[in-house]
Design a protein around this nucleic acid. Structure first.
Lengths: 139, 139
DNA sequence: ATAGCTGCAAATGCTTTGCAAGGCC
DNA sequence: GGCCTTGCAAAGCATTTGCAGCTAT
């Protein structure tokens, strides 16, 4: 199963014109072999360090953007200060936990957006992002 | 009409515990006497300069946040790199024009979000943001 | 008078970039 | 070998902060 993912990644990288370097493979492994997750560059960099993979932060940034361009990741903006990258690229939306600054998925079929007005002339919809912001209850 | 807005602002500032200083009044005037708009700190700073109002960029940032805390503005994040402040604080959503980096409103009754799952235990929904990203048609 | 504001410049935090050294095909 | 990648450090941006001087009440 890990081999399966591995070759899948290899293929995806090739399609995107990206060489399967040690760093990219290691980061892909961290990203895709642990289920869906939402990471920031810094988090991934730390995970790499923990896994004894030496990768510079600049390379983590580059890799995240390259993977996003290759369709392996989806970039999410909720909090002006950092970018999150989601390993789940299917159509879905997010809960944003304001106090912890973390994200979690909301399955697409649990959110229905209707009566959307048509895109203005000359434009088309590239994506619809729904972010449900959550705060802790005061009790 | 401008007087009406002016006293409305004065009252709002007082409620928020904010002194009606020259800078705050001038910025409020720029923000609220020209219809609804979406501004960044830099845009508002430029508008102030054009209107011959001397305000430092730091003060513009402070003021935007204070107005937001006072409920006069709403902060919107769509583009990781900057924050937008919306003079329309009613419930509504946005179009984000990717190539120009600008926002426009979508009336609330034109977007219906349904079947939203309940907020996780111990949390409540503070806001639901819907951003419809638009790109230019290629033809 | 005095608590709160403002402005400047320096600091911060995330992200990008330039360029020499290293690795993949 | 040649071109793509990496890593480091420096640069870049938007935003925040420290602090001395100013202002509304």
């Amino acid at each position: 199963m890990s081999g399966r993912l591995y070759s899948h990644i290899l293929e995806r990288l090739r399609t995107g014109g990206l060489r399967p370097t040690r760093q990219r493979l290691a980061l892909a492994k961290l990203l895709f072999e642990n289920g869906n997750q939402h990471v920031t560059a810094e988090i991934l960099h730390d995970e790499a360090a923990t896994a004894n993979v030496r990768v510079s932060l600049a390379t983590v940034y580059n890799t995240l953007h390259q993977f996003t361009a290759a369709g392996l990741l989806r970039e999410i903006v909720v909090d002006g200060t950092r970018s999150y990258f989601d390993t789940n690229i299917d159509d879905h939306h997010h809960f944003f936990h304001e106090q912890s600054g973390t994200l979690s998925d909301i399955p697409a079929d649990h959110v229905v957006v209707s009566q959307l007005p048509p895109a203005p002339d000359g434009t088309s919809v590239s994506r619809v992002d729904v972010v449900v912001r959550l705060h802790k209850n005061r009790d």
